[in-house]
Design a protein around this nucleic acid. Structure first.
Length: 577
RNA sequence: GCGCCUGUAGCUCAGCUGGAUAGAGCAACUGCCUUCUAAGCAGUGGGUCAGGAGUUCGAAUCUCUUCAGGCGCGCCA
């Protein structure tokens, strides 16, 4: 329908403007869309105001001309000029109402589109270090990355979701040392380094360890304490590796596997599934010329973007406006984490994605420019990469902020959260605010049974419709669904609802274009509000059979839209409450 | 010091590719359950959109600036 109007607008513009360029810039700037409120007609356009400002003409005169053109089309009931020059169009009733049948015919696919043009999009998210369970901070990134994955997929992109496992760094050595030290703690008088991982999960891993792994050798560990805790733990790692290299490697491999598995399980419980788990270690070592990491660094050197200085290798990041050059290979010959990341991004680009989306914690924003520089320097376009920052979420319980400290091993894990309020409510609240802004996550609110709890407010609308359907079937045993009485105008109480559900595809597209799932939440809240209001004003089951046939057809469409919206957020609609 | 983000009703937030009277929920006050789920509905009050300047037919939205808050600025990961 809007396409048809747009065509008419184009015809109109070419009848008053000669300059093709002007026409295009007007079309690009103006918007013709479903009106926010029925008082403004079904469809509204600001094209006359935009055209007026570019052409230096009077917007109201333009609107008059456009109005006379549009009035000739009999699918429109009424065309009005409002405010400074808006053109508001009312469709004829049959067209307006037809959206109900359209929804009920398309069911789950209503709202989906092809605007993604089958572009291959890769979303990398969570990617928490595999050194312990996911905590509530990771949950937000998980909910966000997964939701935009679903939204992009439904709007026609081909999405691959990936978790980057940092298994190559020093953190994994610390993890391994922590497991061993806990296992032999009685033999070395309970010693434990300040920077080791202390959570219970460390003991759990130890308990599961295969009996064939010999920990006996480690008992002879001599501890060199140090002022610098980093140095101290490095010494311990070095000693342990020396005592029994074979067992060290086995324990390391096992610990990593256990943690990755537990992360995967937690994410599954959170309704988040990855297509690929990419291991940093698969990028190889800098000393191996055939490894991804060496190939990347060598290419950068060869192309003149990286250079040696003070025995280290630096990347020139000027191209992205980074404030200084960054080290790829340290003066001791070891590659930095950044070098791995450069290789990883090269790997992603080589896999042929049209778009890369990185979901990062907001504390990494200083890292964006150097990655962009590396992408440009590797001969690709930095616009292929979109980094979406996710701010930390503060957790509130009993009105108080929950303190979290990774160091002490005391933190609210994602698993705790899911057990406490459920995966659906957790996802909902994570997504209820723009991702790059601070979120206060109120656990009490998420469990409360008031209207303030929007999660239940929306679910309640869905459940109420399910219940109405059942009750109506009980009453009439069979319902011949049709929209005759709505279509004829005999029954108009649903009009607000019909108008609202017709907005849904636009909302999904907006959410996809801006990568903001929260617009769907706010939309669902508005739709639910209209439904609850309708529900209170109209006693559906006491309507005539003919009215009820139409009403149910409409409410089933409303239910479908709520369900589709929730599904895009990875949330299961409730059938009953 | 530099960079990024934020400042909208008492509170928590929408609205921000410029557009019609700036919206919701909570809190306060007032109504609505012998009928479909009251986890609901209807109503009242509440705003110099942090301050200032600019761009224009039009600014919460764009630009500059001041103030306030958050975060980041390693040969850590």
């Amino acid at each position: 329908m809007i396409d048809e109007i747009n065509k008419e607008i184009e015809k109109f513009l070419s009848s008053i403007v000669n300059n093709k360029k002007n026409i295009n810039s007007i079309i690009k700037k103006c918007s013709t869309s479903i009106s926010d409120d029925l008082k403004k007609g079904h469809i509204t356009s600001n094209v006359c105001m935009v055209a007026a400002s570019i052409l230096k003409l009077n917007p109201k005169n333009l609107a008059e001309d456009l109005k006379t053109r549009l009035e000739k089309i009999d699918r429109f009931d009424n065309v009005e000029i409002a405010g400074p020059g808006f053109v508001n169009i009312s469709l004829n009733r049959e067209d307006f109402v037809s959206t109900i049948q359209f929804i009920n015919k398309n069911k789950d696919s209503f709202g989906s589109s092809a605007i993604g043009k089958k572009n291959k999009v890769q979303i990398e998210f969570v990617s928490a270090n595999p050194t312990g369970p996911l905590h509530v901070g990771h949950g937000r990134g998980a909910a966000y990355g997964d939701a935009i994955g679903r939204i992009l997929e439904s709007t026609g992109s081909i999405v691959e979701k990936e978790y980057y496992v940092n298994d190559a760094g020093r953190q994994i050595d610390i993890l391994t040392a922590s497991v061993i030290l806990r296992l032999i703690k009685n033999d070395i008088s309970n010693y434990f380094p300040a920077n080791g991982y202390k959570g219970e999960y460390i003991d759990e891993i130890g308990k599961k360890l295969d009996k064939k792994v010999k920990i006996h050798d480690f008992k002879s560990l001599s501890i060199k304490t140090s002022e610098d805790p980093e140095e101290e733990i490095d010494n311990i790692i070095h000693e342990l590796e020396k005592l029994n290299n074979n067992s060290w490697n086995l324990i390391k491999k096992f610990s990593l596997k256990e943690i990755v598995k537990s992360i995967e399980d937690d994410l599954k419980a959170f309704n988040v599934n990855f297509d690929k788990w990419f291991y940093e270690s698969s990028l190889g070592k800098i000393g191996d010329d055939s490894s991804d990491i060496a190939l990347s660094v060598n290419k950068l050197i060869k192309d003149g973007h990286a250079y040696e200085k003070d025995k280290a290798i630096w990347l020139n990041t000027d191209i992205s406006g980074d404030d200084k050059h960054r080290v790829l290979v340290r003066d001791n010959g070891k590659a930095t984490y950044f070098a791995s990341d450069v290789a990883y991004h090269k790997n992603k680009i080589d896999r042929g994605f049209d778009k890369l989306i990185n979901v990062w914690g907001a504390d990494h924003h200083g890292y964006i420019k150097r990655i962009e520089a590396s992408i440009e320097n590797l001969g690709s376009n930095k616009n292929k990469l979109a980094v979406k920052l996710v701010q930390f979420a503060n957790l509130f319980k009993d009105g108080k902020k929950v303190k979290m400290s990774t160091r002490s091993g005391e933190f609210f894990t994602l698993k705790n959260l899911i057990e406490d309020i459920g995966s659906d409510a957790a996802r909902f609240y994570y997504l209820s605010k723009q991702a790059d802004q601070h979120l206060d996550f109120d656990l009490d609110l998420a469990k409360s049974d008031s209207k303030e709890n929007i999660f239940y407010y929306i679910q309640y609308a869905h459940a109420r419709i399910v219940s109405l359907e059942e009750k109506a079937l009980d009453k009439f045993s069979k319902i011949n669904r049709n929209i005759k009485n709505i279509s004829s105008g005999n029954y108009k109480e649903c009009d607000n609802l019909i108008h609202e559900i017709s907005k849904f595809p636009d909302i999904v597209n907006k959410s996809a274009n801006t990568l903001q799932p929260h617009v769907i939440i706010y939309y669902l809240k508005d739709l639910s509000q209209l439904f609850h209001s309708f529900y209170n004003d109209n006693h559906v089951l006491s309507e005539s059979e003919e009215n009820m046939q139409s009403i149910l057809e409409c409410l089933i469409a409303v239910k479908q839209v709520i369900s589709n919206g929730l599904n895009l957020l990875g949330i299961t609609p409730m059938q009953k409450m």
